[in-house]
C-alpha cells in the first residue's frame, strides 16, 4: 500500500511542502479570527467581573473553559451542539454546519478564559494610588480608563498575553480533528494516501515552528516599542 507512484523522493517532499504551505492561510485566518474574538471576549469577561452577577457568570465561564481540554470543547461544539434540535434546526445552523466556524467558536471561548486571567492580573497590578489620584484630579471614568488604566494594562499584560497568543497559534492544529483542512489536516490527508508519516509530520512541524518564531519575534518588537524605558 505505497501511494501513487511519485516523481521520486525530492519530488514527493516538494509536492507535500507545497500542499502544506498552501494550507497556511487557513491556519493563519483561524488564528487571527480567534485572537481578535478571544481578546474582545476577554475584555467583556474582565468588565463583567467588576459586577456581582457578571462576576459569577465570568468565573463559571473561566472555570469551565480553563478546566477542560480544548480538543473536547471543539468536539462538543462540532458534534455535541449539532445533535441538539434547536441548534440543528435553528437560524444559526448554516454557521454551525461549517467545521471552521465550530473550531473558531470553541477556540475563541477557550482562549478568552485564559486571556481574561491575564488581563485581570494586569488590572490588579496597577497601583490603586494612580486611580485615586486621577479621580482626585476630577478625571471622568472614560478618560481614566483611556489614559491611565488601559495603557498600563496593555504594557503589564503583554508578555503573558503574547504567550497566550503563541499557545493559541499552536492550538489551531486541533481544528484538523473536526475535518478542517488546515496545516495539520492537509498533512494527515497526504499521509493517508502516501503512508509516509514521519516526513510529512516533520514538514508540518517545521511550518508551525516558523509561524511561532515569527509571532514571537513580532511580539518582542511590540514589547520593546511599548517599553517606557526607551526600548533598547
Amino acid at each position: 500500500m505505497m501511494g501513487e507512484s511519485g516523481t521520486g523522493e525530492s519530488g514527493f517532499l516538494a509536492d507535500t511542502a507545497l500542499a502544506i504551505v498552501a494550507a497556511v492561510p487557513v491556519t493563519l485566518a483561524l488564528f487571527v479570527a480567534c485572537a481578535v474574538g478571544a481578546s474582545l471576549l476577554a475584555g467583556v469577561l474582565v468588565a463583567a467581573q467588576q459586577g456581582r452577577v457578571g462576576g459569577l457568570v465570568a468565573r463559571a465561564w473561566i472555570f469551565v473553559f480553563r478546566g477542560t481540554p480544548l480538543l473536547l470543547q471543539i468536539f462538543m461544539v462540532y458534534y455535541g451542539l449539532a445533535a441538539l434540535g434547536p441548534v440543528r434546526h435553528g437560524p444559526l445552523w448554516p454557521a454551525f454546519r461549517d467545521p471552521l466556524f465550530c473550531a473558531f467558536l470553541a477556540m475563541t471561548c477557550c482562549c478568552s478564559a485564559y486571556i481574561a486571567e491575564v488581563l485581570r492580573a494586569a488590572l490588579a497590578a496597577i497601583p490603586p494610588g494612580q486611580i485615586e489620584a486621577a479621580r482626585a484630579c476630577g478625571m471622568a471614568r472614560w478618560t481614566l480608563g483611556r489614559r491611565i488604566v488601559v495603557p498600563q494594562m496593555v504594557r503589564l499584560a503583554l508578555p503573558a498575553y503574547g504567550n497566550e497568543l503563541v499557545m493559541m497559534l499552536k492550538s489551531t492544529s486541533l481544528a484538523s480533528s473536526v475535518t478542517v483542512l488546515d496545516v495539520t489536516g492537509v498533512a494527515q490527508q497526504v499521509i493517508a494516501h502516501s503512508y509516509r508519516t514521519v516526513e510529512v509530520f516533520c514538514l508540518a512541524a517545521a511550518v508551525y515552528l516558523g509561524l511561532t518564531a515569527a509571532l514571537t519575534w513580532l511580539l518582542r518588537r511590540i514589547e520593546r516599542r511599548l517599553d517606557p524605558a526607551g526600548g533598547r
Partner: peptide
C-alpha cells in the same frame, strides 16, 4: 471528500446533514 478518523464521527455528520 471529507475525511473522518472513525466511522462514528462520520455517521454523526451524515445524520446531522453536514
Amino acid at each position: 471528500i471529507r475525511y473522518y478518523r472513525t466511522m462514528g464521527e462520520r455517521d454523526l455528520d451524515l445524520l446531522n446533514g453536514r
